[in-house]
């Protein structure tokens, strides 16, 4: 399973793809179980050059019946910094946030090498 994410151009906010537009909550994101559909969405997203910066697909993992980003890095993006629990998306609280905070099974982050390249 995959989701599509990026940072919004105007303010850098972490956003997720939902039906051709972008939402701020991971819980609201479109989930793709079909690779072709995911890649098609990614191509559409990349064309939105004045909306979002460098959109990319992330891998998800199932944890207690919930899909969570596989990499620890993507969980931090979906929640906020761990040293400031009231900053970032986690500030909103609620069951979806808590579930994500407690999700198990983080594994090797993917796709980040690309970001280091210059």
């Amino acid at each position: 399973m995959k989701a599509l994410t990026g940072n919004r151009l105007t303010d850098g906010e972490v956003v997720f793809w939902k039906a051709g537009a972008w939402v701020e909550r991971f819980a609201d994101a479109d989930l793709f179980d079909d690779a072709a559909a995911a890649e098609a969405a990614e191509a559409d997203a990349k064309a939105q050059r004045t909306v979002v910066v460098d959109p990319y697909l992330i891998d998800l993992v199932e944890s207690s019946g919930l899909w969570a980003p596989l990499s620890f890095r993507e969980r931090v993006r979906a929640l906020g910094p761990t040293n400031h629990p009231h900053h970032g998306k986690q500030a909103e609280g609620g069951s979806a946030i808590e579930a994500l905070q407690n999700a198990a099974g983080a594994a090797r982050s993917s796709g980040r090498v690309k970001l280091i390249k210059r």
Binding site: N7, L9, D11, V53, R73, R77, P81
Partner: peptide, 28 residues
């Protein structure tokens, strides 16, 4: 120019970096 779409992110990134502006995990 960037917000208006006159330059791409590839062209803009080095410009913003020259002004100390990075895009990080949660924001700029």
């Amino acid at each position: 120019r960037r917000l208006a779409g006159e330059i791409t992110e590839d062209q803009f990134k080095p410009i913003r970096l020259m002004n100390g502006l990075y895009l990080q995990l949660h924001a700029y």
